[in-house]
């Protein structure tokens, strides 16, 4: 199992670096731009905070965009949230189904390995990829705060990154299940799922009737404005996240062990 995990990680390393550096550097540059935009932000802050539902949707009613917390939440929060969710989705949705689409499954599964072990090794690789993504982005944000001379507190940044990471794991678990069921790479579906989860959260914050059901989506507890304004997420959101992760993982094991392997 160790060898499958290490080979998979080696194979995914380039993708992990490309995605984490892209999102991290975008965040890094955006943070550094804060000082040059600070003057304009002050005059825009009042206008942005009074745009009703749209201010709520982008968190501009809870935090002022003229503060570093508000700026981070509205700019970097969106970049990191969406970028990391897309990365989580495409990494997980490809990891199992690629063996059948590229016809390598027969080679791998003719070796003395159970399907569950292959599944565990690949699931672990997705998890470690998400950890590396979070660490790389986190380090780039810290470097940008150091360059800027101001920033989030360590506990604020840690809380933000941990909740984003949990959201990534939830998105990845759903896509991992899709990968276990599918014999073809469904990268478009993975990206689509990440976008649907994001848009569901956005819509939930704009449409009053949807607000009560916001906690169902993985972005509900990963909203940067709420995290940085100290607003606690609904416990039900975390319970649903835990249930989605566990049920998806269990279903992936069940389906992958039961179905025929396509040559």
């Amino acid at each position: 199992m160790k060898h499958v995990f290490l080979r998979e990680l080696k194979l995914n390393l380039k993708q992990i670096l490309i995605w984490s550096l892209t999102v991290g550097i975008l965040g890094f540059v955006s943070i550094l731009l804060y000082s040059s935009m600070q003057g304009d932000m002050k005059s825009m802050a009042d206008m942005f905070s009074s745009m009703g539902a749209f201010s709520d949707a982008f968190g501009m009613s809870t935090l002022s965009i003229a503060t570093i917390e508000g700026y981070f939440a509205t700019e970097i929060g969106v970049i990191h949230g969406l970028g990391s969710a897309m990365f989580a989705a495409i990494t997980a949705i490809v990891i199992l189904s690629k063996e059948e689409e590229r016809h390598t499954g027969e080679f791998l599964l003719s070796l003395p390995l159970s399907r569950s072990r292959v599944l565990f090794a690949k699931g672990l690789c997705v998890f470690v990829g998400l950890v590396l993504f979070t660490i790389i982005c986190g380090l780039l944000y810290v470097a940008a705060f150091a360059g800027l001379g101001e920033g989030l507190t360590a506990s604020e940044l840690m809380k933000f990154l941990l909740l984003e990471f949990l959201m990534n794991v939830e998105v990845a678990s759903v896509c991992f299940l899709v990968s276990a069921v599918s014999t073809r790479i469904k990268m478009g579906l993975g990206l689509g799922l990440a976008l649907i989860f994001y848009v569901y959260d956005l819509m939930g914050r704009v449409v009053p009737d949807l607000k009560d059901y916001l906690f169902i989506g993985p972005f509900s507890y990963a909203n940067a404005s709420e995290i940085l304004s100290g607003k606690e997420s609904e416990p039900a959101a975390f319970l649903i996240a835990a249930a989605v992760i566990l049920v998806s993982a269990a279903a992936a094991v069940f389906v992958y062990n039961k179905r025929d392997l396509v040559s």
Binding site: L11, H103, T104, F107, L111, L113, S263
Partner: peptide, 29 residues
């Protein structure tokens, strides 16, 4: 499977790997 050697009709491996790495990978597992 520990005592079986299987050769499928279509021999597919991981494209980017070197032949020596594929052989060693199978041995390592």
């Amino acid at each position: 499977l520990a005592d079986v050697g299987y050769m499928p009709s279509e021999a597919w491996f991981y494209d980017t790997m070197k032949v020596s790495d594929v052989i060693k990978y199978a041995a390592d597992i």
